[in-house]
Design a protein around this nucleic acid. Structure first.
Lengths: 342, 342
DNA sequence: TGTCGGCGCTAAAACCTTTTAGCACGACGG
DNA sequence: CCGTCGTGCTAAAAGGTTTTAGCGCCGACA
């Protein structure tokens, strides 16, 4: 490796031209009238010396750093944020951008710190992501710095990328109906009567609306609705175990997420019920565990990677901002079967 | 938000001093002999204007950007990298640094691209991480740019952070022995006879050495060793199901990772065996699923977060480089019990 | 009497790039 | 012969910071 980084001046010197000329040629400015051979000499010199422009110096002049900031509340819990980040990273890479990562842990003080740190580095834009879709209060940014919300919303920034939950909810119901279920379907994790007027999140509300809408369209109703606050396996286990002991007419479970479904599997096993023979299960997220379960869990996936990608495309593109809904994929595995007596 | 960013010149002007003076005062240079009141005026002006130094411009002069690069092969598979990144992020934040993330997917071409992109942004150092600990071929970096390997090794860079696998392996064995197991212990995922001379990774080799060392010290041997290539639930399930059908004297499973243990749980359930009454299980990683299983899986954790943190501390500190081993925590849950007949 | 160092500060260079303004020169139209 | 235009290129400024070199004055010291 060279001792010193080679600079534009080095290239220009070697080509026998001014740095201005070298700059213009390397940046392919259209209106210039430098000679053919000047072009050749500069390109040759740059190649021979292995010249790479200093992005920091360029940024100083142009106020563009080819760098975007990604601030999320949590990067680690589950691998949710991982998918968002991966998609963002890929889209950024394609646009020859690079991403600065910052984590806030949900604390607004750290968030302010993080934003300032990013701004100090002259980022070209910022995407704000949350792991559980929610309204985020984001301080104003200096003008000229665009922002897009990822799996979150903000009154300040209209550009938003969210999963398209309503059709997702409908799809889940349809999977059960198409398999022949019409009675004995229980909803796990959400109960309108128990949670009336409680705010979970905008996206969850839409998911529920989709589910109820599709049930209504088919003229169906749930045989039971279990309200669960924390959507973790333990609570899914408790609630489903209780439910299945109380009622013997439950044939299918519509779980609000995969971790609840995970607990439901455990409860079913406890009672000697087989999935999907005795009990069909469908849920949401396409979490890592969904593939590990046996039989594999059929689920409506959260399209994290696509969302992350879309967010930076929106940030970098000059499209008018708005709410963008990314379709949720149906991931069919083996947890749904035809209804059977028990 | 202000229309234009306030610059050092603005502060100096308002304080009635030169930018030089303002710079010296704000940076707290020790040898300077500017007056007390000059200090006050400058600090007051900076505070009133909300001045923040332009890190890019400063970096141009000082060749320090308070930015470090984090290049990993995969950011998303499992949430492994997530822990590494989180630790790194926290340590960086404490040192007022910020991290530039790049992903290579393991392809050396993308890696070279990523490194160049980071270097173009004048990062102060780079940490190279892999998800599965392995030797990484890293191209030379320009001098003055330090690097540390995280969960990976490189012949070029001696600074390395790895989990301390040998004691980890010993601890796993000790957990079983302390619970009273001496016979009927099976090793799942690794078989020396089947995999002689096969290279998995440096860390896995040490884990195995620890396991065998401790077994030998206690005068014990495995009742069976199942070689498994892909450490995924499906394969754990297949191997353990087969094993438990073949032999009825297996009382404890030492699994090479939590996903294999997950499969083992499923196999045990299939055969009507209860964990830990009929079968004790211990494994490695403290993966997310370990807490979801019932009973909770006792496991030797991979200290990802501490490793990530240590890596940037090493990168930023001026300590002499070497191999640093981070202790693996014993995470006791409920999957180990006293041996019992079957 | 000459020199030296301390004082409190500043002008200018340096970092690397892009952008603006313009130079010298020849050709060409009127 | 004068003005204009096109050609191929460069000097210099700009962007925001840090660093180096030094200025003008005064008191102390040899």
């Amino acid at each position: 490796m060279p001792r010193k980084r080679v600079t534009l001046a080095d290239v220009a010197r070697r080509a026998g031209l001014s740095t201005t000329a070298a700059s213009m040629i390397l940046n392919g400015r259209p209106d210039t009238r430098l000679s053919k051979e000047a072009h050749e000499r500069v390109h040759a010199a740059a190649a021979e010396l292995g010249y790479r422009p200093n992005v920091a110096a360029r940024g100083l002049r142009t106020a563009k750093t080819l760098t975007i900031g990604f601030v999320s509340d949590t990067v680690t819990t589950t691998r949710f944020a991982g998918g968002l980040i991966k998609g963002a990273l890929e889209a950024a890479e394609e646009a020859r951008h690079v991403v600065l990562l910052a984590e806030t842990g949900g604390e607004s003080e750290r968030e302010a710190e993080a934003i300032a740190a990013l701004l100090d580095r002259q980022v070209d834009g910022i995407v704000f992501a949350t792991v559980r879709a929610r309204e985020l209060f984001v301080p104003a940014l200096p003008e000229g710095v665009p922002a897009v919300m990822l799996n979150a919303t903000s009154s300040r920034f209209p550009a938003t990328v969210l999963p398209d939950e309503e059709p997702g909810g409908r799809a889940a119901v349809r999977l059960l109906v198409d398999a022949g279920h019409s009675e004995g379907i229980a909803l796990i994790g959400q109960s309108d009567t128990a949670e009336r007027d409680v705010f979970r999140s905008r996206t969850i509300a839409r998911r529920v609306a989709g589910i109820r809408g599709e049930m209504a369209d088919k003229g169906l109703g749930f045989v039971a609705e279990e309200s669960i606050w924390m959507w973790e396996p333990q609570h899914g286990y408790d609630a489903v175990l209780d439910l299945l002991r109380r009622r013997t007419d439950v044939r299918a479970l519509l779980c609000m997420n995969d971790r609840l479904a995970f607990g439901a599997y455990q409860a079913a096993a406890e009672l000697g019920l087989r999935v999907p023979d005795d009990l069909s299960v469908v849920s949401f997220d396409d979490d890592e565990v969904a593939a590990y379960l046996r039989p594999g869990l059929t689920t409506i996936g959260l399209p994290h990677e696509a969302m992350g990608r879309r967010a930076v495309e929106l940030l970098l593109g000059r499209e008018p901002a708005g709410e963008e809904l990314v379709p949720m994929p149906v991931v069919e595995r083996a947890s749904i079967g035809p209804p059977r007596g028990r």
